[in-house]
Design a protein around this nucleic acid. Structure first.
Lengths: 256, 256
DNA sequence: CAATGAAATCTCATAATAAGAGATTTGAAA
DNA sequence: TTTCAAATCTCTTATTATGAGATTTCATTG
């Protein structure tokens, strides 16, 4: 889908940079985006001049220093990060665990804040790394609170993963599982994303709509049913409070 | 200076976000950039859709989740970060200190990688935070290796700071001081940026041109003359090696 | 140094898009 | 419901973007 307006066209260059393709040559960019040489070089010049891209060896481009700076700004300015910090601190003080705030945007979920008190943290999702949507407590905590018209296509899209991790065998089963999560207000998953880890996650809602998730991961050995219940309650409550503080409204859909 | 091409105009919105102004309302953006309402909203929509900006409370915009993701990508793809890591590890193993890699771009310097073995790290320049150009060993290590036509305007610009920290009283004195730094291959500063800290920095050169700096900071109490000399030699050598590895060429201007 | 070839940039006519004045819609608050 | 501010839309005109092709720059090789 080739964009026609030039603001979007220049920004589309940035869209190509991903974990699997963090470096691009101009030839590759031209081919992938369908831009002609002069047009692409013009865009590259604009992006380089503002610091969003930089050249590295081999004539390849990667994201530039202004990205680094903007992330610093983002860390400091994001109300979700600031508001969540004391909650993360309390949760990690109460249990040896890793506590994460994960934002959902577009079709991705990114950790934006985390703290760990686990002796050997086993989670490997540092700030900014996209997480899978088809697996894990975090994804499920978010999906479960989506309006049904939005949820149904996602279930189709991730049906294979959802089946594989045991959420349900059919779309109806999966829907029912999501309904249970919504009623419980929290999702729990065992080793789906990170082997050996239990993830317990509750959504952070803005006007009832999930925009992020608070997740606590503990090592599987420590995770009795009672502990999981206790952490679940704490996670649910902390997520509720964070949502209230950041979005100025009580979460109103916890018991649909 | 109002840009006329629309690629640059949309990117100029991002330029406004800074440490002192991380949040902007549309009204403020309109006023600052001189764009009309429909134009600005068009740009904001583009930037929001790609995730570079997001709305927060009070109708204010801040940098968005795609920035967070791109910084993650940048951390992993930047050859300077990867190449420097073992060097930082070695320096922090040898001394209780903080070791930093700082990139210079445009008129800013940003830490892009750091490690610390100091018992109480006193440096407060996390990844991405811009550093002052007029003070400190890092700035001086970079400036000293600039070609004179480029250095002279910078001296004028930062003359007040440079005088205040004792580099020199006149532009001639300051130039002479930079010449000495260039000959030494390393710059040393005492408490100019962070009170109580000694900074020892050497430039990382690309074809003789400074693009970054390696800096070690130690607490002032530990810093005998002999220790500073020893660290200086290690920093100079590590910076040289990093430059060689990243930019594929020996640094050729160490003894002009 | 010259030759070569790839990368990068420039020129310029034409087509496409962007801008913005003004109108309209949407959303939130009272 | 009314009001008002924020956000979006319409449409004409002006401006800019595009891209074919030419030219320059840069790096490598002999």
């Amino acid at each position: 889908m080739k964009k026609t307006n030039s603001q979007d066209r220049v920004l589309a260059v940035l869209d190509l940079f991903s974990e699997s393709r963090p470096l691009w040559t101009p030839e590759e960019l031209m081919r992938e985006l369908g831009y002609t040489r002069p047009t692409l070089y013009r865009y590259l010049k604009s992006l380089k001049d503002i610091g969003l891209l930089m050249s590295t060896r081999g004539g390849r481009f990667t994201l530039g220093p202004r990205v680094v700076e903007m992330d610093y700004l983002s860390r400091r300015a994001d109300p979700l990060v600031a508001t969540a910090a004391p909650h993360l601190a309390r949760l990690t003080a109460a249990h040896p665990c890793t506590a994460l705030i994960v934002r959902w945007y577009g079709d991705k979920m990114l950790c934006v804040a985390s703290q760990s008190s686990a002796p050997n943290p086993i989670s490997s999702y540092p700030r900014g790394r996209p997480m899978p949507m088809g697996r894990g407590a975090i994804a499920r905590s978010i999906m479960a609170f989506l309006p049904k018209p939005q949820l149904v296509p996602l279930i189709s899209r991730y049906a294979h993963d959802l089946r594989q991790v045991g959420v349900g065998a059919t779309p109806e089963d999966i829907l029912a599982a999501f309904k249970r999560i919504r009623r419980a207000g929290v999702a729990v998953a065992f080793g789906e994303v990170t082997p050996g880890a239990v993830g317990i996650a509750a959504p952070i809602l803005d006007a009832g709509y999930p925009v992020a998730s608070l997740c606590v991961t503990v090592g599987g050995q420590q995770a009795s049913g009672e502990l999981i219940d206790r952490i679940s309650a704490e996670v649910r409550e902390a997520a509720r409070q964070i949502g209230t503080e950041v979005f100025d409204e009580p979460n109103s859909n916890l018991n649909m």
